[in-house]
Write a protein that binds this DNA or RNA. Structure first.
Lengths: 263, 263
DNA sequence: AACAAATGTGCGATATTTGAACAATGCCCA
DNA sequence: TGGGCATTGTTCAAATATCGCACATTTGTT
C-alpha cells in the first residue's frame, strides 16, 4: 500500500493559482530576508510587479504583513494560525509536558519533528531550566532529511520507496567535512536506523554536534520522531548514549499512547 | 499623529478576493474545529461548495491541509511560516532567554503579547522547569483586550482614541462574575494602567486567576507588553505583587534595549 | 434494495487578474 | 541646485481564472 504520486484525487487545474502565489509571497520572507520591498518580492517569486503589489496589498489587508516605509515584514498574526494548529492538536497541553519531563530527567532538550515538504520540521521542543535556546532551531525550523538524526529516522520509518526517492532527488550538500555524500552510504545508514530502531548521526550537519533519534509509534506507521542532540564527545560516550536512547524510547512510547490525534 | 482609518494607502479593489477567501478557509480551523468536511467549511465561511472545494484543494496541494477520509485538518506546515517570523524577529534567540531568566527568578511564567486584529496575541512565553503548561494558552493564543491585564495594558499604551474605539465597539462578554461590563469602569481601569505604568486585573477573564502587565518601551510607542498571571490570592498579596511588578519592569527594560527589530 | 439526502464535478457567464504602457518618485552628477 | 536617468508605483483593456448553477455520484436510511 505504497503511496504513489497517483493518489492525486484532484485535478491539478483545480488548484487556485492566486492562492498559491499569495503563499509564495508569504514564504519569500524567510530567515535571511526580514524586510522586503515590492521589487525584491517580485524578484524572489518571479511574479510581475503589479501582481506582487496586489498580493502584498491583500496580505497587508489581512494583517499578515506590515508596511513600514517602503518595505514589508511579517506580523505576529501568522502565529495565530500556528496557534490554531498547536492547540487543535494538543501539542502544548499533551505533548509538551511529556517532552519536558523526560528532558528534565536526562538534562538534554528533546525535540519532536515530522516530515513536511521534504524536510524534517520541528513541531515541539522540550523546555529546560537554565538553558538558553541552543541554536537558532526552534519550533517551525526545518532540518535536512538526509544528514540529521531526526531526518534519517523519519526516512527509516517510511516505506523504503519514499526514502529512496529522497536519496535520489534531494540535493546533497556538504554541510561539514563529515557529511556523507555517497547515496549508497546514506541509504545504508537509513536502513540501519530502520533495523535497530534508532539513528545516530555525528557531525554531518553541524560541526561538533551529534544527534540521536527514535520513532514515535511503530515503524511504517510512525508519523513523527523525537531526538536529542549535543556535543559529539558526549553523544558518542557509550553510557550516555544508552541512557539517552532508552529514555527516548520510553518517551516515544508514552507520546504514542496519549497522542491520539496524530500530527 | 493618530492613525486614522484614512491612512489606507491602497485601493480596496486591489485586494485579491481569492487570497482572502483562502485564508478564511484556513482560519475556519480554529480550536473548536479540528477536522472539517467541505460542507462544514462552506457553512463556516459562507462560500459556495464548489469554491470551497477549489480552495481546499489548493491548500492541500500547498501542504497546509491534509485530507483523511472525508475531512481535512491543518498540517504542521503552518509552523514553518510561523517559524520564519519567530526566527526573523529573533524571538527565540533574543527574547526567550530574557523571559526565561526573569521568570526563573520569580518562579512564575512571563508572557509577551502584542496587539493583533483586535486581541492580545501571545508572541512568546517563558519556559519554566517543572511546570506543566498552565492552561491552554500558548504562543499564538488570543486574549480579549478589555478584560485581561495584558489587553488593558496594551490599550493603555496606545493613543486614547484607539482604546476608546475598542471600548465602544468590542463585544462585552461576562467571562466571570467579576468581569467589568460598564464601559466607563473599563475606561477608568485603562487610564489607571496608563497613569501608573502597569495594570492589574483580578478574575475578570478566568475565575480565580489574576494578572499583572507592564509595557515594553515607552508609553505611546510601546508595541508590546509583558505580564504574569496566577491565583488571585497570590497576586493580590502586596509583597508578591511588588516583586512581580518590579521584576517585570526590569525585564521590560532589558527587552526594550535589545529588541531592536520591533514586532 | 430502492429512495432520499448530501456531497462532488463539468461548464458557460462573469468578475478578477494580468502585464504592458504610462506616471511618479527618488537618485546621481554636473 | 537643477536636469536627466533609473527605479518603483499605478492604470486599464485583454486574457484568464473563478463562480455557482445544474447534473452526476456517493452515502445513509427505512
Amino acid at each position: 500500500m505504497t503511496k504513489d504520486a497517483t493518489d492525486q484525487w484532484y485535478n491539478p487545474r483545480d488548484v487556485s493559482t492566486t492562492l498559491v502565489k499569495g503563499f509564495a509571497v508569504l514564504s519569500a520572507f524567510d530567515d535571511a530576508r526580514l524586510r522586503l520591498s515590492l521589487p525584491e518580492i517580485g524578484q524572489k517569486t518571479g511574479y510581475d510587479r503589479a501582481t506582487v503589489r496586489r498580493l502584498v496589498i491583500t496580505l497587508v489587508d489581512l494583517g499578515l504583513l506590515a508596511k513600514t516605509d517602503k518595505t514589508f515584514s511579517l506580523t505576529p498574526e501568522i502565529l495565530g494560525l500556528a496557534g490554531n494548529y498547536l492547540r487543535g492538536h494538543g501539542i502544548g497541553t499533551t505533548l509538551q509536558p511529556i517532552l519536558n519531563s523526560y528532558s528534565e530527567r536526562i538534562g538534554v532538550e528533546i525535540s519532536l519533528a515530522t516530515m513536511s515538504e521534504g524536510s524534517a520540521l520541528y513541531i515541539a521542543r522540550s523546555h529546560m531550566s537554565g538553558s538558553a535556546v541552543s541554536f537558532g532551531f526552534t519550533v517551525g525550523s526545518r532540518l535536512p532529511l538526509l544528514h540529521t538524526a531526526l531526518g534519517r529516522m523519519l526516512l527509516g520509518t517510511l516505506d523504503p520507496e519514499t526514502a529512496a526517492e529522497h536519496i535520489r532527488t534531494d540535493k546533497l550538500i556538504q554541510y561539514t567535512p563529515r557529511t556523507l555524500l555517497a547515496p549508497q552510504a546514506i541509504k545504508g545508514e537509513i536502513q540501519k536506523a530502520r533495523a535497530q530502531g534508532y539513528s545516530v548521526v555525528v557531525a554531518e550537519f553541524e560541526p561538533g554536534v551529534a544527534g540521536l533519534a527514535v520513532p514515535v509509534g511503530r515503524l511504517g506507521t510512525a508519523k513523527a520522531v523525537i531526538g536529542v542532540s549535543g556535543p559529539v564527545a558526549k553523544i558518542q560516550e557509550a553510557e550516555t548514549q544508552d541512557l539517552y536512547l532508552s529514555t527516548l524510547h520510553i518517551c516515544a512510547g508514552e507520546i504514542d499512547r496519549v497522542w491520539v490525534e496524530g500530527v
